[in-house]
């Protein structure tokens, strides 16, 4: 690539990619820490599959897919929680049911509209460099809302993640906090789809969190390390994708994985 660093970062599409990627990355990494510690890592994957169905429905009906997907994925996340509570089945099983139904719905709709078109494929693999201005504003606004909720309910989320039973004995309604966590995750999954795509979205939740768990010396520090890892991955991943002509979403995920390996090796050497 024969353009300079400053030329590169002056492109408005690159600036949008950095801003959206960093906001969504911070969000995924913080929520991911709560999910990984609660052994709910794969809820991101499950809800991404539901998003595929919702986006296919949006494309099929002629609506803007991301806006259309947010309420559907939120409803699905609530369904996962209720299914776990009412049907006496484990969380991973409920995620499996909802995810496969969402994916099957997406495939049926894609088939009904004469196969996978370019629009649907772009959501499967994401394209952070093609994020529009309105999507950037949406990412910023929803990220700020979710981060504010996490900040205000930090101790409730911490207590329920640490031990649900003990949290209940301190007067926290853990059922409500669990529901809130999956709703926030649902919103974040839809935002992250534009960055890394449906296929890779769960890595955005899991990898920064497990990196933080290797090296953190406390819960607050784990949150900061997780968020820092996500920011670093987005920045290095976008540069790598541009200069090496690689897909951006996949590059970010590989950088995330390299950071995890480095943190793992560092911990082993201690």
């Amino acid at each position: 690539m024969d353009i300079s660093f400053f030329e590169f970062i002056n492109y408005s599409f690159v600036q949008r990619a950095f801003i959206s990627g960093i906001f969504v990355g911070i969000l995924c990494s913080i929520l991911g820490l709560f999910l990984v510690l609660r052994k709910l890592s794969l809820i991101g994957d499950g809800l991404a599959h539901v998003s595929f169905g919702a986006i296919a429905l949006g494309v099929f009906c002629g609506f803007y897919p991301i806006y259309f997907a947010i309420p559907i994925v939120i409803i699905s996340s609530i369904f996962i929680v209720k299914l776990t509570q009412k049907a006496k089945i484990y969380g991973d099983t409920a995620i499996g049911i909802v995810s496969s139904v969402g994916l099957a719905g997406g495939v049926l709709l894609a088939s009904a509209s004469n196969g996978f078109n370019v629009s649907l494929l772009s959501y499967l693999f994401g394209n952070i460099l093609a994020i529009s201005t309105s999507e950037t504003y949406l990412s910023i606004a929803l990220s700020l809302v979710v981060l504010a909720i996490v900040y205000l309910l930090y101790y409730e989320l911490f207590a329920v993640t640490f031990n649900e039973e003990q949290a209940n004995v301190t007067g926290i309604k853990s059922d409500r906090i669990n529901l809130l966590l999956v709703i926030l995750t649902a919103i974040t999954v839809v935002l992250a789809i534009r960055v890394v795509g449906i296929m890779l979205v769960s890595s955005f939740f899991i990898l920064p969190a497990v990196t933080a768990l290797q090296i953190s010396k406390g819960f607050k520090s784990a949150i900061f390390v997780s968020a820092f890892t996500a920011i670093l991955s987005v920045i290095i991943g976008i540069f790598a994708s541009f200069y090496l002509n690689l897909p951006a979403g996949a590059s970010i995920v590989i950088v995330n994985f390299i950071l995890f390996l480095l943190s793992f090796l560092w911990r082993k050497s201690m």
Binding site: L213, G218, F219
Partner: peptide, 16 residues
């Protein structure tokens, strides 16, 4: 594998 310090765990007792 929870990464909480002793201080963080005991301070959880105060949130009630």
């Amino acid at each position: 594998i929870f990464p909480a310090t002793v201080y963080e765990v005991v301070s959880l007792g105060l949130i009630s």
